[in-house]
Design a protein around this nucleic acid. Structure first.
Lengths: 225, 225
DNA sequence: GTCCATCGCTTTGTATACAATTCTTGCCAA
DNA sequence: TTGGCAAGAATTGTATACAAAGCGATGGAC
């Protein structure tokens, strides 16, 4: 039935968006590099129209920045901006865990437990890729519980993907992986206790911890306040 | 061809955006009404291009909703969506007040005090318009303290404007105005005490209170959980 | 040699044309 | 009558053309 190539049936605007997002998140643009519509259009084989729409969407998500007069640049984030991003994440994820706490069932708890166990294994095996994978899965499972809270879900997903690009490297920092897994363990415990206040606090601290790690990785010379 | 836009300096896309935002926020579109590009373009005297860009921006802010297959509709919010909006606001504003707390100075405290006093006066005079005005000013003053936290600031401003349309009516509810002013008083006290935890909690409760009022106003028949 | 004005090139902003898709309507068959 | 299908109308998606605005380079005045 559906024999057509799937990559071709989504609208050009979406493909352009995915392509550019990927490019920004993997740092394929040098920081401050100007994003010229015509050039991008030619490179990707679209016209300027879908490119423009993709650029505007990326801007609304804060992935690129408008220049003073016109056009966009691939933004290099300042330490302050990274800090703020993580802080907002911490606050939203904390609140989300509070909501999630009220919706817990044993099936999910088992899944989370499993994630942690596998991440631990990967840690012992010193396979950071797999640690990263299972840590990611841990948060995915939690987010899935609140997909019906669309604003919240959308924001969390957006912000997390924004951050995942350097999150991986962060794990390589001394004990970064261990700290993350410990954080997840605390989160699981708070969920088991069905304590919303504790849930919120623990999640917030977890994200703030990862903020510290990320800042130290990204800006090693700077003091983190 | 361009005989009509000489008095306008801002780009068409921005004027289209402002116009449509205003129309949505004041309820000029009936809920569920389809927003056809061609029609809007003709009505407003633009071409479809700036209209499209404006519509996409409005969608990214959650003011309109994409239909299943194509196009947008002016969305009537469900109780659940209004609830979520206020909850996210509560969380963000709470965090913001925590930040603001660390930046307090006497000048700002005096201004806030003044706002509250004037709102009280207006309450006694039963001038709800002026109550509304000074309550709005109260939050404006707070937000101005964190304009440099751009994501946070932008989100708070966006969400608040979204909510202000029915906020005014909410005040007309029994004691709605008094409750709001009381909330502001608590906020001021928490700031005076320079207690970040208290600040966050008090602000969150304040927004949640206004959520309750708003829900009762918007959906009087429903039970509010 | 330096500063400023101006011209032209580059890039974005807007309009419009055209293609693709969805929605509607009306007809025909079961 | 109803269900489904097809044709055409309506509307969006994309490409392109054109207008306007910025940016840079060149050249002239001092």
């Amino acid at each position: 039935m559906d024999t057509k190539d799937r990559s071709n049936d989504s609208p050009a605007r979406e493909r352009a968006y995915e392509f550019l997002k990927e490019a920004v998140l993997t740092g394929r643009f040098s920081p401050g590099e100007r994003l010229a519509e015509e050039h991008l259009a030619k490179t990707m084989g679209f016209s300027r129209t879908p490119i423009r729409e993709a650029l505007h969407k990326l801007e609304s998500e804060g992935l690129i920045k408008p220049m003073a007069t016109r056009g966009f640049v691939a933004s290099q984030d300042s330490p302050e901006e990274v800090d703020e991003l993580f802080e907002i994440r911490a606050v939203l994820e904390g609140y989300a865990l509070r909501v999630i706490c009220g919706r817990m069932d044993d099936g999910i708890l088992v899944q989370l437990e499993d994630c942690i166990a596998r991440a631990e294994e990967a840690l012992k095996a010193e396979s950071l890729d797999r640690v990263f994978e299972w840590n990611t899965r841990f948060h995915d499972i939690l987010h899935e519980v609140v997909t019906d809270r669309r604003r919240l879900y959308h924001q969390m997903v957006t912000m997390r993907q924004y951050v995942l690009r350097y999150r991986k490297n962060t794990l390589q920092y001394p004990d970064g992986g261990q700290r993350t897994v410990d954080g997840h363990r605390k989160i699981l415990m708070a969920l088991r206790l069905r304590d919303p206040d504790l849930c919120e606090r623990v999640m917030r601290e977890h994200i703030q911890q990862s903020k510290t790690d990320a800042l130290q990785f990204l800006f090693p010379q700077k003091e983190v306040q």
